[in-house]
Amino acid sequence: MELLLASAIGVLIAAGVYLALRARSFDLILGLTLISYAVNLCIFAMGRLAPGKPPVIRDGVALTLTNHADPLPQALVLTAIVISFAMTALLLVIALRARSAGASDHVDGREPGDKA
């Protein structure tokens, strides 16, 4: 299972970086979204994989990490998910405004070959 997760993270990063390097603003946003999925999975994976052991304290289950998944990386990732969503929304609006009044959606604000 570790190999599955690691390879999925790698593929997400590769695709995300490739899209982020594209010339259009929307591709950049898609790329950053994929990268943020990968990074969230990566941080989460640092707590090691523990399928079937939610970090909720129940009666009779000893309070050790062999019986629960690591809650700390999960808390960190939760924050990360929320903030990266906020940034995605912000980027979308910036891309939108950058396109105002006939300007292009190229990441540089103008088509290559146009003078500024």
Binding site: A6, V11, A14, A45
Partner: peptide, 14 residues
């Protein structure tokens, strides 16, 4: 470059 990043991350995480 993207593929290199991906391979590197996979190796690191694994």
């Amino acid at each position: 470059v993207a593929v290199t990043c991906g391979v590197g991350t996979t190796a690191l995480v694994y």
